[in-house]
Each structure stands twice: as C-alpha cells, then as structure tokens.
Nucleic acid binder design. Structure first.
Lengths: 219, 219
DNA sequence: GAAGAACCGTACCGTACGGTACCTATTCCG
DNA sequence: CGGAATAGGTACCGTACGGTACGGTTCTTC
C-alpha cells in the first residue's frame, strides 16, 4: 500500500490523515472505539471539523470506506493471450491476493462495521462495501476468466457462475470465520493452489492438465 | 421448527419465552434494538430478573445463542450404504438445508451480532457460534461424506478438505453478502444442484456420473 | 391459610456518546 | 497590513443505555 499518495481527489490531505487515523482506531478497537470525541483527540482535530467535513457519524463511516477503497488498486496486467501455465499462475496469484485482502485488518474491520450497521441503516454501508469495494477485484477476476476463455483454456456457459465457483473454492467459509474472530490460514498459497486445481478441473479445457490434476486430486 | 417444545433443560419455560422474545427483537431491529429495558418491557418481565438469570448483557447474548441452537436439530438419517443417486439426493438436500439455515432471519441476526462484538469481547460469541452452532450441521455433512467414501462413491484424501470444498461450492460468498444486507438467492435448489454436480465431478468415482456431468457443465 | 420465594413495575444513578456552540489561532489573499 | 476563511480546543446539552434498588404482587409449599 502506498504511504501518502492515496490522496483521492475527494479528500484533502488533512481529511485523509484524519480518515487514516479513524481506520486505525477502528482496526484496533472495533466500532465502539471509534467515537467522534476519540477521533478528534487522536487526530488532533476538532469535532466541529469532523461534522463540517462528514456531516454526521454515518457520513464519517461512509467516508472511511470510500477512502480505504481509493487506496486499493489492483494491477490488472492480463491483457492478451495466455498459455496454460500462465493462466494457472495468474489464477493462483489472484487467489492469494484475494485471501490476503480478505484477511487484512482494515478489510475485516470495515466488513464488521458494515455488518454491524446493516440491520439499522438499510444496509447502506454494506451496499457501499459490496458495490465499490469489490468492483475492482471482481473486474480483475472476470477479465482473467474471460481471457482464459478467449484463449481456449477455459470453458463455461456463464462467466458469472464460473467466477462464483472459483470464489467459493478459494474462500469457502474462511471469510465468515475470520469475521467471527478466527485467525486465518497458515498457508494461503496452498489453499490458492488447491482451489485453482479444482477450478481447472471443472472448467479447464486442456486434457493433459485435467488428467494430471485428476490424478493428483485422487492421490 | 417446533413451536414450544424447545424448552432446553438449561432454561425454564419462562426464561425460554424471554429468550425467544429477545431473538425477535434482535431480528427485527438489530443489536441496537435489543436493550435490557426494551426486552423487559416486551417480554413483560423485570430487568432485575434478566440480571438474575443471565448475569449481564453479554450473558444474555450468550444465552440467546445457546437457546437458539438448542432448537436446531438436524435429522441425520444417512447410516448405511448409498447408491449414486441416493448420494446425490442426500448431498442436494444437505446443500439446500444449509442455504436455508444460513439465510434464516435468526441465523443472520445472531451472526451479525457475534461479528459486531468480535472486536471487543475476544470473539467469545463468535467462538460459541462456530463451535456449537455449526457442530451439528458439520457433523451431518461429514457423516454423509464419509458414508459416500465407504460406499465407494467418493474419493478424497482428506475429508475435511473435501467438506470445505463442498461448502465453498454451495455457499460461495452468499453468506457474507447476506450478512451485509443483500437478499438471498431466488432459487436455492438450483444452486444446490450445481454445487453437487461440481462436487461429484471433483470427488466422485462413478465414471458415468462424471462424464455426464462433465458434458452438461460444458453445455 | 400463612410464610417465603420468585417476580413484576418502576424509579433511579452514573456514564458515555452524538451533536452544537463559542472562542481563539493560524493561514490565505487582495 | 487587515479582514475573512479555516480549523483547533473546550465546554456544554440532551439522551439513552447498563445496571441497581425497592415496594408491591403473585405463586408455591407446607
């Protein structure tokens, strides 16, 4: 993550610094620890400024999500055709990145926050998280899957379905478990590898790959 | 779900009624709506009784989880050998049940509650939910999978891994999306069907089944 | 039928939060 | 240089919650 260049056009540097501090408080203490007074104290700003900038507490939370997402940029360097090995490599990298993102402190804290609020604000934060937060990573995955199909390495009749299958294979119930407080995996790489193997078996076209994977999965 | 017979030995009928009312409040308004005063008013009991029975608010929440789980009983009628079709049938039923449970009002509300608290109570509620809430359904799934293997219909080298694969195929990111406020699927049955197809392709042994499914998945 | 426990309803206390008002200091700009 | 805008510091208000205390009421039990 870049250090300070994350000054999205939406926020002044000062506001960004305050939002970063707000995220820090949220991560270390949960939403209970994120009070307007506490944030003002920790960020050396006044409550009045907070209310001027963000309206109210909900506005602050929304700004935090928006701010955090402005820092997430996914390198999407899979443009043209791919070899079998390259596809597998890209899928594995994607899976590892996905697991890493989901297990991140800030991601978990924001998801917990949105989930906690979802019952009383009409899921406003949840919608933000889903629509803006995952758009980037979804797009990257879809591009990868589409490229795989165009290269004749994958076959499916619904890209969305294929993506959800892949997501499920990679994440399983890990995300919810981590949200509930469990620690993550010891080895994301291995999980990514297995998920990709299974996914290629389900949707790959390369017979050698399929057979090889099949044999190994039955080992 | 049985109406009133759910009087676990741990709670008196009166306490059970109060806990049921607490769950109702939680479902309809989130944790913010579940105040001790509000519960006392809604359940026609006194706050003093609440504190006498459950200790403090956290004790009440824990009791709610325990109470709800005492109502969930999974019929586990898969004892002996299975045919291919019977296995598929059982897997589909399980998958549908799983999706239905996860999408249930009370389940979602309790998971939201536990996730919201996880950052400030050392994940006590989260642990309860994972260890006691899922034990039943996990056991049922594992029994099913083991039976499949003993019947020569499934192959894998790690039952846990196979179960997680199946879980991922069935649920994907649906659970988190619903926790964030999205509505569930229109058709759980179809999702269950597709997940079972994929799972059998990955871990089934029946060649006919495998080929048939393979063909259909590439349709 | 009386003693006693369990329980209800309510009133109360301390606290902590969201939000507002007011005043001061710094910076920006003509 | 001077006035306006911006932002920090602080004190304050209303509210609502968790938790406690107490008097009155119902239910049990002998």
């Amino acid at each position: 993550m870049p250090a300070d260049t994350a000054t999205s056009a939406k926020f002044t540097p000062r506001q960004s610094a305050v939002l970063a501090e707000a995220l820090r408080l949220l991560v270390e203490g949960g939403d209970k620890a994120l009070t307007t007074s506490g944030l003002a104290r920790a960020a050396n700003c006044s409550k009045e400024s907070l209310y001027k900038w963000f309206g109210d507490r909900d506005g602050l939370l929304a700004a935090m999500i928006s701010f955090q997402q402005s820092k997430v940029r996914t390198a999407d360097r899979s443009g043209e055709r791919l070899s079998t090995d390259a596809l597998r490599e890209h899928l594995e990298i994607f899976a590892r990145d996905l697991l890493e993102v989901l297990a991140g402190d800030v991601s978990l804290a924001l998801n917990r926050l949105a989930i906690g609020q979802s019952s009383r604000d009409g899921s406003k934060l949840g919608k933000m998280l889903l629509e803006h937060g995952r758009r980037e990573i979804d797009r990257r995955a879809r591009a990868l899957i589409d490229t795989g199909k165009r290269s004749g390495l994958l076959r499916f009749h619904d890209a969305d379905e294929a993506y959800h299958t892949f997501y499920g294979l990679v994440v399983s119930d890990l995300h919810v478990r981590m949200l509930l407080g469990e620690s993550g995996l010891k080895d994301n790489g291995r999980q990514a590898q297995k998920a990709v193997e299974a996914f290629l078996l389900l949707h790959g076209t390369n017979k050698d790959t399929v057979e090889a994977v099949r044999a190994s999965s039955a080992r």
